[in-house]
Structures are given as structure tokens and as C-alpha cells.
């Protein structure tokens, strides 16, 4: 490295030093600190006491931990595929030439702009067993709707329905990718007599597969960290029979309400490992099916 290059490097580093400092102080240090605290009995105010792997072992025998994990994973397994499917289908529909297309695009994207707290408050009323608009609609077609938020069988489906309502963000990403698919591919498929759905299957999906993959990974991360909606709608106890106690809610309660910060740190690491494993599995299983134009 010449003197000039070194100087340029130093100037460059100086320019990004606020970001580097921020990363080290606000991200790296807390992450490393939680690793240490996860092996301690830590109640925030008092000094941490080293207890080895007790926090991790305790999770194995904590039924509430397992229930929160079950709730979160079962929600994710339903919400992620449905979210991907709906965001893709809506994007495909909104990519068609039709009157008022931009208005429809705005309408479908709007729910993604609503703050999570407001979303939770709105849906509390939508799902209301007696006065909710959803049950009113069901009644019009002769169906006696359930008590969505009080009956433990319907708490997680309620949250899945809410997540589908908010697919606007993923939809916009899909829509942007759809507009990049070369037109000539569809033209040649049409000449070969391919139907609309065959074009979707053989051209659209492969061509926007990197974006679908991105939405999948983001879906995994967001679903496993779901916090605001269940916390507001079902409180820290997690609703009827804890059927809506999500992992992040239980983690938060341990950290800030029960004073079990060490246990909460251990839970955070377990969640991190679960996300890493699920992301790795998703990457591995989709590797051969993703098409990158440059490769």
C-alpha cells in the first residue's frame, strides 16, 4: 500500500468512523454482553453471578418457554407461506394492465403503513366476538363466527389473518421485481401457447426467485420476533390458556417484568440460533431454485 493509498484509507475510515463506533458500542458490545449474561444470574441492578449453563438447562424444564416457542413456530409455519403467497399473488394481479392500477397498489400497500399498535387496536374490534365486523360479515353468509380472541383455538389464526392484511411491504418488493422481468420472455411463451399460470410458474417465479427468497428470510425473522400485536391484544399472560404467548413476549417479561435478565439473555441467544438454523435451512433448500441473472 502506497502512502497515498494509506492516506485515502485513513480518510475513508475517518468518514465512516461514526458508523464503526456506533456498530461497536450499540451492537457488538451488547451482543457480546448478552452472551456473558446468559451464563449468569443477572437481575440488572445487582452484579451478575456466574451460574454456568443453568439458564439454558432451565429452559428445558420450563413449560412456559416451550409453550411460547410452540406458539411462535406454529404461527410462523402458517403465516410465512401464506404471507409469501398473498404478497406474490397480489403483486401479480397489480402488475396487470388495468384501470386504476396505481390506486389499487396504494390501497393494498396502505396497511403496511399503519403503525403496529394501531393495527392491533383496529383488529381487537374487528375480531370482537359480539360486535366485531368479521363475525358480522360471517353472520351475513350464515356462519356463526367464533369468539376469536377468547377461544384459544382461534387466537393464533387471528394473528395470521392480521399478518396477511399487512403484506403490503413484501408485495411492493415483489411488484418491483415483476417489472424487471424481460417482456420478451412472456412474448415467446405466448407464441409457444403457454397459459397465464404456466407463464407465472415457468417465467415469473424463477425470474423473481431472489426476491421471493428475500421475503422468505425476512418473513422468518419477523415472524419469530413477533411482539407488539400479541402483547397489545393478549397482554403479558398471552391470552386464553397462554395460546398467544409468543417467544418475544415471554423474553420481554423475563427481562423487564420478572427481573430474570440472565434467563432472558439466554432466551435471546436460543432465538438467534433458531433464526440462524431456519435461515440456513431455507437457504439450503432453495439454493438450486434461485436464479441470479449475473451467475
Amino acid at each position: 500500500m502506497t502512502r497515498g493509498e494509506r492516506r485515502t484509507l485513513l480518510i475513508g475510515l475517518a468518514f465512516i468512523s461514526p458508523w464503526i463506533m456506533g456498530l461497536l458500542l450499540m451492537n457488538l458490545y451488547p451482543v457480546l454482553a448478552t452472551m456473558y449474561y446468559s451464563f449468569t444470574d443477572y437481575v440488572v441492578m445487582a452484579r451478575p453471578i456466574w451460574i454456568g449453563t443453568l439458564n439454558y438447562r432451565e429452559m428445558g424444564t420450563d413449560p412456559v418457554f416451550w409453550q411460547s416457542l410452540y406458539n411462535t413456530v406454529s404461527y410462523a409455519l402458517i403465516a410465512i407461506p401464506l404471507g409469501l403467497l398473498f404478497s406474490f399473488l397480489i403483486a401479480v394481479m397489480l402488475n396487470q394492465a388495468m384501470i386504476g392500477r396505481s390506486v389499487f397498489r396504494t390501497i393494498f400497500f396502505l396497511p403496511a403503513m399503519v403503525p403496529f399498535v394501531a393495527v392491533a387496536m383496529i383488529w381487537l374490534w374487528v375480531f370482537h366476538g359480539q360486535f366485531g365486523i368479521l363475525n358480522y360479515g360471517l353472520q351475513l353468509i350464515g356462519v356463526d363466527g367464533p369468539n376469536w380472541l377468547v377461544d384459544e383455538r382461534y387466537t393464533k389464526p387471528s394473528l395470521v389473518i392480521m399478518s396477511i392484511w399487512s403484506v403490503g411491504g413484501a408485495m411492493v418488493i415483489c411488484l418491483a421485481a415483476l417489472q424487471d422481468v424481460p417482456r420478451q420472455l412472456y412474448e415467446s411463451a405466448e407464441l409457444d401457447g403457454a397459459s397465464f399460470w404456466r407463464q407465472v410458474w415457468h417465467i415469473t417465479i424463477p425470474m423473481i426467485s431472489p426476491v421471493l427468497y428475500f421475503n422468505l428470510i425476512m418473513g422468518i425473522i419477523i415472524s419469530l420476533q413477533l411482539f407488539i400485536q400479541p402483547y397489545i391484544m393478549f397482554g403479558p399472560e398471552g391470552g386464553p390458556n397462554r395460546s398467544a404467548l409468543f417467544y418475544a413476549v415471554y423474553l420481554y417479561e423475563n427481562a423487564f417484568s420478572y427481573g430474570n435478565m440472565g434467563y432472558a439473555c439466554a432466551m435471546a441467544w436460543v432465538l438467534f440460533m433458531i433464526i440462524v438454523i431456519m435461515t440456513w435451512l431455507a437457504t439450503r433448500s432453495t439454493r438450486k431454485r434461485i436464479y441470479y441473472a449475473g451467475e
Partner: peptide, 11 residues
């Protein structure tokens, strides 16, 4: 442990 105890009792 009262916060935790209370939440458990509510459940």
C-alpha cells in the same frame, strides 16, 4: 418473584 407469581395466578 411477585410479578411472575401474579401472572401465573392470572393464567
Amino acid at each position: 418473584v411477585w410479578n411472575e407469581y401474579r401472572d401465573e395466578m392470572v393464567v
